[in-house]
Design a protein around this nucleic acid. Structure first.
Lengths: 246, 246
DNA sequence: TCGTAGGGACGAACGGCGTTCGTCAACGAA
DNA sequence: TTCGTTGACGAACGCCGTTCGTCCCTACGA
């Protein structure tokens, strides 16, 4: 291999025509771009993910990305779908639909939470990726095969999905706030945050807001995971009650 | 009225000292800023709401706003709370808690939907405004007075609120998309959108996604309001089932 | 082997954004 | 009257997403 410049940095004599620069073209590709975006997302959060930042990471200018990705929105969709790809699905067993739906919700919620604040991009995109329909087929099939009328099942699944993503979204907002405030520890942030809210509630006039001021600790107490499970069971119980013959 | 420059653009002679520009000080105030922001939000949507745009509307530069508003986030919080102020609350009657909670949810959802896409700002802010706690006291008090343990009531209310705002948020994303795509009519947009999704689902391989491809119309059919009510009743039924002795 | 068409890479720029800095004029208090 | 404070504001900083036009490598047909 002939190089334009030796490894030690000594320039080649000018009369030696450069036949082949080692990397005549960068090997950009959509996959590489998405992967790079993913790395930034995980390491520094959604706010740090800009087209320019991705390009910089790949040692090029932002314009180069647009040959492989239509725009930032498409990049976010690709990233989101890649995350959804990490959801592992069991074999479908309609007899245990409730159990499986619950496990699915927890798994999806976990995966979304595992990637910093992707969820903030999730609600903003219309999910039409491969992994999105894969998950959709699983949960929708579960309810249909369990006997729920298809139209109703469609709505129920839609509501469940909204709940999962909505909660993850809220979580990712806190994640971003935590990052912006300089915390590197979920617990520290949570404590500081709830102290602040508590103080605010306690300062309210008790005669005007008797219940809020009386139960400040209860309002602030519950952790995210417990809250998520509570609402999840609320929804699942509601679906069960609407399931025909069972 | 003496002006620094005539209406026809002829400059005044330099030796004529300008004694009094007509409005020596603009009468900026936080209220005025929020009000202006509200007008932009309603008329042109959240994407059009920038600090510069608000300043322009007030015939000044963006720097002037920062004397009355800490930053854009604070402006959004103020706007959001102003919207929440439009929620009308009935007198609390714990005996009819479910009915009242349902009416509240529908009212809140309606108000959020009535202001273009404020909801997109809603999830992004920690609601600590006056009107936010006012609504909180109402719904929380309702459950507590109806006999639910305070800690559980706190979680239940939290979940219900997340659902309301989450759905409104999703709706406002469609609103923004509709606006960006040039539609000025919710129905036209909805039709075009569901046609697109239907086509996408129909093109999927049937052997891999049997349920999705079989029930395409059911998946796409339901309107937003019906979906919202379905999920709302899911949650309310779940809360009812957890209400002690009731 | 040559000529050429196509397309990816990319520098530069456009028009936006939120926010900060420094200046200046008006006002209230002393 | 003087002076310190404060709001208004022009200008600028450093970002952003995206587009345009150019260059040159590559593949292909002759």
């Amino acid at each position: 291999m002939v190089d334009r410049k030796g490894a030690d940095g000594v320039p080649a004599p000018p009369w030696r025509k450069t036949r082949k620069p080692v990397q005549p073209r960068r090997q950009l590709s959509q996959d590489l771009i998405v992967e790079t975006g993913m790395r930034i997302l995980d390491a520094e959060g959604l706010d740090a993910l800009s087209m320019r930042r991705v390009a910089q990471e790949l040692d090029t200018g932002p314009a180069s990305l647009y040959a492989h990705v239509a725009n930032k929105e498409e990049l976010l969709e690709l990233l989101y779908d890649r995350v959804l790809g990490e959801i592992v699905l069991p074999e479908r067993d309609p007899g245990r639909w409730k159990e499986q739906l619950r496990a699915y919700a927890l798994e999806a919620h976990r995966v979304l939470g595992a990637h910093g604040d992707v969820a903030r991009a999730a609600l903003a995109t219309i999910p039409t990726g491969e992994n999105s329909v894969r998950a959709g087929e699983f949960v929708y099939g579960l309810l249909v095969e369990a006997g729920m009328p298809p139209r109703e099942a469609a709505i129920a699944i839609d509501r469940l999905s909204l709940y999962i993503v909505g909660d993850a979204y809220e979580g990712s907002l806190h994640y971003a706030r935590m990052r912006a405030a300089g915390y590197d520890n979920r617990e520290d942030y949570f404590n500081a945050f709830s102290d602040q809210i508590s103080a605010y509630y306690r300062a309210l006039p008790a005669e005007q807001f008797p219940h809020v001021t009386e139960h400040v600790d209860d309002l602030v107490d519950a952790e995210g995971e417990e809250r998520f499970r509570y609402g999840l069971d609320l929804i699942l119980d509601g679906i069960e009650a609407r399931m025909p013959e069972g």
